[in-house]
Amino acid sequence: MSAKRQQLILNAFALFYEKGVHAVGINEVLAVSGIAKKTLYTHFASKEELVCAVLEYRNAAYLRWLEQRLDAANEGVAKVDALFDALDDWFHDREEVLFPFHGCFFMNVSGEYGDPECAIHQQCAKHKVDVEAIVLRAVKTLDLSEQACAELAAMLCLLKDGAISKARVQGDKTAAASAKKVARQLV
């Protein structure tokens, strides 16, 4: 990937994550990036293509971070705890790789692109599937049946997304710790 393309993606992500996709124009991305409009259109035919590239970037970064956090934990309940401890660090801006917390980028963007047939919305939905797969791998270290693991992973993802929403919308930075208590009861 070219350095200018990567620079555009990173700067666009930072702006989109803080302000929202529709609130940020291409000219603002260019100004922050210090890149000419012609260069932007060399890499991206439209703003939507840039948004898709930003979603790919964030998905990869977030999944890598989450896998590392869960892989570092011991098996079993420790992995469930690690999920919510990771969220707590993110909510309190202790995870530099994720940028200052502004909620779930994929929830935010899917709210701006609500048509389920839209490629951008579909990328947001795929992210949630990818995250649940990582959580499921962690849950499989518990001594549970396949069906129980799948059900628990789905419930933990609901708790995770609820905690993210509560932290963002209501400013409750303790939401991950509260969700961790509920997760412990589920396990």
Rank of each mutant, 00 (worst) to 15 (best):
D172A: 03
L30W: 04
K140M: 15
L186H: 00
A60K: 14
K4R: 13
V21M: 04
Q123W: 06
S46T: 13
A175N: 04
M155R: 14
V54P: 06
C52P: 00
R184A: 11
V29Y: 02
L15E: 01
E146L: 12
Y57Q: 08
F105T: 11
R94C: 07
Y41L: 06
A72Y: 08
V24E: 02
A23G: 02
S145M: 08
A183L: 02
Q147L: 14
C124V: 10
R184Y: 10
Q185E: 12
A61G: 03
F101W: 09
A154C: 11
G25P: 02
Q147W: 10
E49V: 02
A12H: 05
L142N: 06
V109I: 15
G171C: 11
E151W: 04
F16A: 04
Y113G: 05
A148S: 15
D172M: 01
A73N: 05
A167K: 06
W90M: 07
K37M: 07
L158W: 01
L55Q: 08
E49P: 00
V21L: 05
A3D: 12
R64W: 02
D89Y: 00
L144F: 15
A119I: 09
E95Y: 02
I164P: 02
T141C: 09
A23W: 01
L158S: 09
R69E: 15
E48K: 10
E146I: 11
G25W: 01
A138Y: 05
F13G: 01
I9P: 06
S165D: 13
G34C: 06
E49M: 06
A176N: 10
T42L: 12
F106P: 01
V77P: 00
Y57P: 03
V97C: 13
A167G: 15
A60P: 07
C104R: 07
R5Q: 13
G20Q: 09
H43Y: 15
G114F: 11
A12Q: 06
F101D: 07
K140F: 10
M1T: 09
A119Q: 10
L159A: 07
D161F: 11
R137S: 14
T42K: 10
G103V: 11
A60Y: 09
T174A: 14
K173V: 15
D130E: 14
L158R: 00
L30P: 09
D161Q: 13
G76I: 04
M107A: 14
T174W: 06
V80S: 02
K79W: 08
F99I: 06
R58T: 03
Q6H: 09
K47Q: 04
G34I: 03
A86Y: 01
L63P: 00
F99Q: 14
E95Q: 13
V97H: 06
N11Y: 00
I35F: 07
K181T: 14
C124T: 09
T42G: 04
F105R: 00
A119G: 00
D143P: 09
I164N: 08
A138W: 05
V21D: 04
E56P: 00
A177R: 08
R94I: 07
L87F: 13
N59G: 12
L40D: 02
L152Q: 03
D172N: 13
W90F: 14
H127F: 15
L98S: 10
N59H: 12
A150V: 09
D85T: 11
L8N: 05
W90L: 10
Q6I: 03
L50P: 06
D172C: 03
E48G: 00
F91P: 01
L63N: 12
L40M: 15
V21E: 06
M1I: 05
S46N: 02
E67H: 08
E48V: 04
K38P: 00
